[in-house]
């Protein structure tokens, strides 16, 4: 999977529209509420801020390797992909439609810092509605797959949404966490977390760490084609499990064990050593295939 840089189309650098166009079968995407017929956020207008016609999210239907799917893509370059009222309503609407029409999957291209603070409670309510809609779609048997590899990662409320999805596909460049690095530093001080230390940020929230921890089902290259083949491969072997109490209990137990094992650690390096990685200091420099080999060789 290590492609020559020249033929790679970076997922990280692409716009949401370019990601959708390259992810789905060529020409198959049909956008619901495209920019020409939708309205920018009235909340931002009241604050004298220019909005975006699509309010920073694209929603619609298309095909992935011939299978009918729905897709949602957040635009990280617009207000950090943050969720406002219209943005959230478009996502919720598509997820509810998925629960009714039952496409093969919903692909959720997350690139967001969480709630759009300018829209206050409307943004918070939108996030909680998205959470419910993700779970309802899954309960209806429709897998919701999060694809994380954009510049804003998946933080705040969208970090929770990512974890509510059936599975997460992530690139090394992708990040996943609850509070963002700057938020932690602001609240708890630089001694707690130095958000300027980018290497530390990636060792704690980045795609490799999340994959080694088992938070993400698949690690893919930062390449639109790699996300496409990864999603296709993942869906071909995935059946949405029926919700069960036993499964929830097992997840809870795993999280408790994890907390007990790693809660005192300050850095991904310590966690990787505890996981059984032989040379944890080499992890940041490993390419995707070597890292996957390390993960597969870990004691279970």
């Amino acid at each position: 999977m290590s492609l020559a840089l020249a033929v790679r189309k970076s997922w990280f650098e692409a716009t949401a529209r370019a990601r959708v166009a390259g992810l789905l079968d060529a020409g198959s995407f049909h956008e619901i509420l495209p920019p020409a017929v939708s309205q920018p956020s009235p909340h931002l207008a009241q604050l004298e801020l220019p909005g975006a016609f699509d309010d920073g999210v694209i929603a619609g239907s298309g095909r992935l390797a011939g299978k009918p799917i729905f897709a949602i893509a957040q635009e990280g370059q617009f207000m950090g992909g943050a969720v406002g009222e219209i943005h959230g309503a478009k996502i919720v609407g598509l997820l509810r439609r998925a629960a009714q029409e039952k496409p093969a999957a919903v692909l959720f291209l997350i690139d967001s810092g969480g709630v759009r603070l300018h829209e206050a409670n409307a943004g918070l309510i939108a996030i909680s509605e998205i959470m419910r809609a993700v779970l309802d779609a899954r309960a209806a048997g429709v897998p919701v797959i999060a694809l994380v590899g954009g510049s804003c990662g998946a933080f705040g409320g969208m970090g929770i949404v990512a974890k509510l999805c059936s599975a997460i596909l992530i690139s090394e460049e992708g990040r996943l966490a609850l509070s963002g690095p700057e938020v932690i530093e602001t609240v708890a001080g630089v001694e707690e977390f130095d958000s300027k230390d980018r290497a530390l940020v990636w060792r704690v929230t980045g795609g490799k760490h999340r994959y080694l921890m088992g938070d993400c089902a698949m690690l893919v290259e930062d390449d639109i084609a790699a996300f496409r083949s990864g999603a296709t491969e993942f869906l071909s072997g995935w059946g949405e499990p029926a919700p069960s109490i036993a499964h929830l209990r097992a997840s809870q137990q795993a999280l408790e064990k994890r907390l007990a094992a790693y809660a005192t650690y300050r850095d991904g390096l310590q966690v990787w050593a505890a996981l059984g990685v032989a040379e944890p200091e080499n992890v940041p420099m490993l390419d995707r295939d070597s890292l996957v080999a390390v993960k597969e060789g870990l004691p279970t």
Binding site: R17, P35, P50, F53, D54
Partner: peptide, 18 residues
């Protein structure tokens, strides 16, 4: 058919032609 290009990001703009 209407066309859109660009993103409303820092130092950037979006243009919609109808």
């Amino acid at each position: 058919s209407p066309a859109l290009c660009g993103v409303v990001g820092s130092g950037n703009l979006e243009i919609l032609i109808k």
